[in-house]
């Protein structure tokens, strides 16, 4: 296990943080998770950069990897289609 990887380095290709299916904007999450802002916050430190994967329907760490990674073109096409 690698300890204390620096987040300042750009997310490697394949990580959710750089994936087109991934959404982690605080306001978007607060609208998708009713009640989140009542006793916590989308902008809280405890949330780190976690977000929602619209491909797998999971709430996960921005550092996860996945074979379905998309840099944007495929997702755009899927959404339009």
């Amino acid at each position: 296990m690698t300890l204390f990887r620096s987040p300042a380095k750009a997310a490697p290709v394949g990580r959710c943080l750089g994936c087109a299916h991934f959404t982690n904007d605080p306001q978007v999450l607060e609208s998708l998770f009713p009640g989140l802002s009542s006793f916590s916050s989308g902008a809280a430190s405890v949330r780190a950069d976690d977000g929602l994967c619209r491909h797998h329907g999971r709430y996960l760490s921005a550092w996860c990897t996945c074979p379905a990674f998309s840099d944007g073109h495929e997702a755009d096409a899927a959404e339009k289609g």
Binding site: A11, T23, N24, D25, V28, L32, A48, H55, G57
Partner: peptide
């Protein structure tokens, strides 16, 4: 899982906020 049924449409916004 099919994206069309996974999550309601939302802006695809990503914020990187760890580190400095």
């Amino acid at each position: 899982m099919n994206e069309a049924v996974a999550v309601p449409p939302s802006p695809r916004v990503v914020v990187s906020s760890v580190g400095w």
